[in-house]
Nucleic acid binder design. Sequence first.
DNA 1: GTCTATAAGCTGATAGAC
DNA 2: GTCTATCAGCTTATAGAC
Lengths: 205, 205
Amino acid sequence: MSGDTVAEDTRSRLLATALKLFSEHGVGGTSLQMIADELGVTKAAVYYHFKTKDEITEAVAAPALQELIARMDEAERQRTRGAQIDHALSGFVDLIVRYRSLIALFNSDPGIIRAIDRSLNGVENFAARMRKLLVGPDPDLATALTANVLLAGLALAGGSPEQAHLDDETLRVHLFDIGRRMLGRPKRRGSARAEGSASMGAQGA
Amino acid sequence: MSGDTVAEDTRSRLLATALKLFSEHGVGGTSLQMIADELGVTKAAVYYHFKTKDEITEAVAAPALQELIARMDEAERQRTRGAQIDHALSGFVDLIVRYRSLIALFNSDPGIIRAIDRSLNGVENFAARMRKLLVGPDPDLATALTANVLLAGLALAGGSPEQAHLDDETLRVHLFDIGRRMLGRPKRRGSARAEGSASMGAQGA
DNA sequence: GTCTATAAGCTGATAGAC
DNA sequence: GTCTATCAGCTTATAGAC
């Protein structure tokens, strides 16, 4: 990336610091002072990069949010239902692994949820859209609940500090397999349950 | 209950109000002023019932916590592994349904998690103990992750406002069936998946 | 870009009247 | 039991020097 300036580096370090503190203390339990101290600067320096705390919260969530939307767009373009399901699931798991604690915040922290609502004017309902991709538009109660348990469970368990020691590929494969199993998708050869490691292409129906 | 005084009523209304606000704003995002306003009293009145905010947080969590420990004790006294699993699972689901949003906070809100750590001096590790009941002492990675996804998913999805319209019995039966299915337990006759409603005894091996 | 200094307002918490 | 009044400290946020 040739466009990296010192300011952009500080900005991205600030967002990484904010994410870390948000997941440790919650958005409501994190002050700008805490972020500034952790970064080693003053509060005023933080305000140079972001006008408000809300703006920081929205900026923390934005990249993963945009990716999530892109993954769901992609999944909807798949032709078979099986491919749609696998694509949506692997896209979601991929984000959990890449952003770790952030997707867990999407599923539980009121501060992040409000920031998302603000930045999208409440237009999108991610949980509903993802659930539709996984179990169709009019699931019965048991199926809808299964999808909700799966989405929240993957995000929270995958983003938990307990799994911080796992490398991305291992975590990804295992979470994907748990999802497929809960959704009643057919078994793949060399699945994590038998092997502990496998390459994961999400294209196949 | 013959011991109910006006003070006890105010105290319990206060805890109910605190729980509601905690689940809407997070513990860190809830002030004593918000609790007092919602109750229709002043902050000073709140301080008559509890010395500190930490004390309120601990008191909100305490009843469900004690019940959870009791349910796990009970489950450990079951003789067959199958009965242990069903007992632990049904006990957990029962608490999710009865306390709704509170068990979700146990699984995600840093403020509640810290309150639990404080009131137990960090002696108990609930997630580890419950996981051991469900999948044994030395599960492989895939199995341990499955249990973690299940526990977090049940709590968050069950406590979500999206499920607030479901009556206790319906929610209980469906969450229990999802748990049994994820843990690979044999199918029961008249399960929620087929029937949408069934009586649930957790004793059978 | 980061700093010091400052502002208005909210926080958790206490003292004492009724 | 609940109130008013008050506290020191922290909060978000701004102005202006370097």
